[in-house]
């Protein structure tokens, strides 16, 4: 799972893809996960980090993170080729 490395993320939650010219906003949890992806953390590491910090459970996190990845893919923020190789 690799995030497109040109993506710019700011503290305000503004996400910009200079390749496509599209901009997005994300909530703090979204930004946190994008930052983890940029550091090339694995899905399992992301799950663990979220569970460690927030009051929630494994099923919820797995489901929500998977859905978030779907959104990132739809928005072309995750490189499709690399994800299929994973």
């Amino acid at each position: 799972m690799k995030i497109n490395k040109h993506i710019a993320v700011s503290d305000s939650g503004f996400v910009f893809n200079p390749v496509t010219g599209e901009s997005f906003t994300a909530n703090p949890m979204g930004i946190e996960i994008i930052e983890m992806l940029k550091k090339e953390q694995t899905v399992e590491e992301i799950h663990a980090a979220v569970l460690d910090k927030y009051h929630t459970d494994n099923t919820t996190v797995e489901k929500d993170v998977a859905e978030f990845f779907e959104l990132l893919k739809n928005f072309s923020l995750i490189d499709r080729h690399e994800t299929t190789e994973n």
Binding site: S10, S12, G13, F14, F16, S23, T25
Partner: peptide, 11 residues
Amino acid sequence: NLSDFEKISTL
């Protein structure tokens, strides 16, 4: 500047 758009969009 994109930063202007960012400010009005996020703040």
